[in-house]
Amino acid sequence: MDIKEEIKDTLKETIKENIGGQVKDSVVGTATSAFFGQLKVYLYIGLAILALLCVVFLQFKYNIFGWGESSLKIDKTALVVEQTKKIQEFTSAQFYEETAIKKERVDSGMVYNSNCELVVLVHGTVRAGFNLSKLGSNDIVVKGDTVYLKLPKPEIFDVIVNPSNYEIFIEDGKWGHEEVTEAVARAKKQIEEDAIKNNVLGTATKSGKAKLTELYKSFGFNTINIEVCGENK
């Protein structure tokens, strides 16, 4: 009987020790994994906050989402007339052109060089005709119902490229006001050259003669003889 009880006690203690150790190990294991799990969560939260801060900074500094660009309004200021002068410009032809100007630049950075690109779409108007203030007293002669008119050479009066006539189509990288102005000025020069190549002065001569003939005929003259300075007869 004693032996039986002794064996019983020994078995009880052995079982108690084994189970206790296992429970202890599992508790320690669970605590460790819970700690690392929590650390991971904190890490993710930290990274998310960091990313959010980065996005907020990029938005404020570089406006990556393009918010509020169209809401900017100018303040009311006065329009000042500096000078007024009398002119006598008879505009008889207009030339329109739409063109695009591209500028490229390479910005060297610490990590890599970035290609910057600017494309501006420009549509301009060239106005040409006769400066009638150059007409001398002998340049209009009336004989009966015939008018003899000698016009000066046709000339270009204006090449118009206003801010509403150009559009920034592509702006990669940072482009200053002067660089955009330089691109628009280049387009303006090109439009003027194209107008001359496309015979805007010839159109001005033809159209001007036709309109003045119509005008003088409405004043009761039958024959209108118009000669343009430097024009081949």
Partner: peptide, 23 residues
């Protein structure tokens, strides 16, 4: 995209203007 067009306008005054644009 180019185009020549005829017209008949008599310009009789030219003003030189200036303006400050601020925002």
């Amino acid at each position: 995209k180019m185009q020549n067009a005829s017209c008949a306008e008599l310009g009789s005054v030219e003003c030189r203007i200036s303006k400050v644009i601020k925002a």
